[in-house]
């Protein structure tokens, strides 16, 4: 089962199992987040960067309304270094050529979500949204650096579980995102027929909130 399917199943389960939130005063929260991002353009990333997994970190700001609805704006960075390669065809061997490459994704995301009622100290939540992802690739060949950057629209869905009742809280969150047509016009992504730099992200969050549940 793919990560996005797991995420969808978890969202459906949460809707059935969770209880509605108690009325609350709502409030602002800021968070710092870090985790692991697995890019959808798996073959391209593995060929050039050696792995399809990225470390990622960032932060966000949210506001929760009184009935559990919240909005969140966040930004993260995911980057990895590798080297330029040559691949003759999708099934062909990857030949490493030694020229350094760095690849960086910066998704800026806006989420509309819903916080369910608390199970003890745990508060599940779900959300969907969209945003803009900056895609930047930079490589240096024999002293000449070439840069390519662009921004593409994105969409995402997420599910999380928040722990804590006071101002300082923690959360774990799973997210599936799509950033279509961001790559695939050149490089190895053209050979592999990959164009999406979205993927699956697991995040841990540290949250400071003014909300009172």
């Amino acid at each position: 089962m793919r990560p996005r399917h797991l995420l969808a199943a978890a969202c459906v389960a949460a809707l059935f199992l969770a209880k509605p939130p108690a009325a609350s005063a709502g409030g602002f929260a800021i968070d710092a987040q870090g985790g692991y991002f697995s890019i959808a353009a798996k073959d391209s990333a593995e060929a050039v960067l050696g792995s399809s997994g990225f470390g990622t970190f960032g932060g966000g700001l949210s506001y929760t309304f009184g009935k559990g609805i919240f909005v969140h704006a966040g930004v993260r960075v995911a980057s990895r270094d590798g080297e330029r390669v040559f691949v003759a065809d999708p099934a062909g061997e990857v030949f490493k050529l030694g020229h350094p490459v760095s690849f960086r994704l910066v998704p800026v995301e806006f989420t509309l979500g819903y916080r369910f009622g608390r199970f003890g100290s745990f508060t599940p939540y779900i959300g969907v949204g969209g945003g803009v992802t900056s895609v930047k690739e930079e490589s240096t060949v024999a002293g000449i650096t070439e840069k390519e950057s662009q921004s593409k629209g994105s969409g995402h869905a997420r599910i999380g579980l928040e722990f804590g009742k006071k101002a300082l809280r923690f959360a774990v969150e799973a997210q599936w995102s799509t950033v279509p047509d961001a790559i695939g016009v050149g490089g190895v992504s053209k050979i592999y027929g990959e164009s999406n730099v979205g993927g699956f992200t697991i995040l841990g969050k540290v949250i400071f909130t003014t909300a009172r549940d």
Partner: peptide
């Protein structure tokens, strides 16, 4: 040819 390929370039 010697430059090879990056992700998208």
């Amino acid at each position: 040819a010697l430059k090879g390929l990056g992700i998208n370039k």
